[in-house]
Amino acid sequence: MSTDYQQAREALGIRLRELRLGAAGGRLTGPQLAQRLGWPHSKIYKLEGGRQTATSDDLRAWARAVGHPDASDELVARLRGFESHIRSWRRQLAAGHRPVQDVWNIEVDRSEIIYAWEESVIPGMLQTADYARAIFLRYAELYGSVRDTEEAVRTRILRQQWLHQRGHVFHALVWEAALHALVCSPVALTAQLDRLAGMIGMDTVQLGIIPLGASLRIPTANGFWILDDRLVIAEDWHAEIWLDDADSVTTYQRVWNTLDESAVYGADAQNLITRAQRSLNPRA
């Protein structure tokens, strides 16, 4: 959990405590408020201490219970303000992968220059349908989410039209390990590597690959995308993290540039792809 997120949660907790102590009709203790709400009294202190994230319904109920229903909008606005940056997979995938892909397509369409770093998979903008299908199925199984796989695949592939529009440049940076990772069938990976090789030389795609044996100035940590100079989207196992403040965008761009110092391009990148292809089919 990010420091900024936690600080915002704690600030919301302080505001909740202020409302409890300033309740209409007189100050309420934690147990008294819990009784009014029908909650365990530990929930009151977890919310006030920033150790639990309230839901919108929790906040509206709190405002009513302390006699300040007019505070509901303020509290919910605070919650949305910091939750918009931490988009949990549990909530995002409640309706399946397709809606998540729709949101991504909107942001990509707004962009002209995109930088992506992926340490374990081929970037979505360069994936074949079969490779994307395997990825969605793996994650649907992991999170127990709705299996709208075909709709999600179609939406992700639709996004790739962006690569064929004038003025767009996709700077993709991939660790060599992603070329060998069997997150799909060998047949699907073979086709994916063929597609990747075909991207080298496109004027809208700059594909860099960091060899496994390359000297690294920083560790190859989690993947992230930078859209123009306005938004960073980073992935973790619990959530997608959206960052739109200038300092964060600058930091991630510096990380990308540092990783890029270890990458190879052009013919050297092609050789790494060829090596991965031969490992799948030694007789080729």
Rank of each mutant, 00 (worst) to 15 (best):
Y5C: 04
Q7L: 04
A8F: 06
R9P: 00
E10G: 05
E10P: 01
G13L: 00
R15F: 12
R15L: 14
L16C: 12
L16F: 10
G22Q: 01
G22V: 13
G22M: 15
G26V: 05
G26C: 03
R27T: 08
L28Q: 10
Q32M: 00
L33F: 03
Q35C: 13
G38P: 01
W39P: 02
K43Q: 03
K46E: 09
G50E: 05
R51A: 15
S56K: 08
D58P: 03
D58Q: 04
L59S: 03
R60T: 05
A61Q: 01
A61G: 07
A61E: 11
A63K: 00
A63F: 03
A65V: 03
P69T: 13
D70K: 08
E74D: 10
G81H: 01
S84P: 14
R87Y: 02
S88E: 06
W89S: 02
R91L: 14
L93G: 05
A95F: 04
A95Q: 15
A95M: 06
I113C: 02
I114H: 06
A116M: 11
E118P: 04
M125K: 06
M125G: 06
L126D: 07
Q127M: 13
T128M: 11
T128L: 09
Y131S: 03
A132I: 03
I135A: 01
F136Y: 05
R138Y: 06
E141W: 10
L142F: 04
L142C: 02
Y143V: 00
Y143G: 01
G144W: 00
S145C: 11
S145I: 02
D148T: 05
V153R: 08
R156Q: 09
L158W: 01
L158C: 05
R159S: 13
Q160F: 00
Q160I: 07
Q161S: 15
W162H: 04
H164D: 15
H168D: 04
H168R: 09
H171T: 03
H171M: 13
A172I: 05
L179K: 10
H180D: 05
P186I: 04
V187I: 14
V187Q: 02
A188Q: 01
L189F: 01
A191R: 09
Q192M: 07
Q192P: 08
L193A: 07
M199C: 15
I200N: 08
I209H: 01
G213Q: 09
A214M: 06
S215N: 14
S215T: 14
R217E: 11
R217W: 08
I218P: 09
P219W: 01
T220G: 12
D229Q: 08
R230C: 07
L231R: 11
V232E: 10
E235R: 06
E235F: 02
H238P: 03
A239K: 07
W242P: 09
L243W: 03
D245M: 08
A246S: 11
V249A: 12
V249R: 11
T250M: 13
T250C: 12
Q253T: 14
R254T: 09
T258L: 12
E261F: 05
S262Y: 09
V264R: 12
V264G: 14
Y265Q: 06
Q270E: 11
Q270H: 10
Q270V: 09
L272E: 06
T274A: 15
T274R: 13
R278F: 08
N281C: 05
R283L: 12
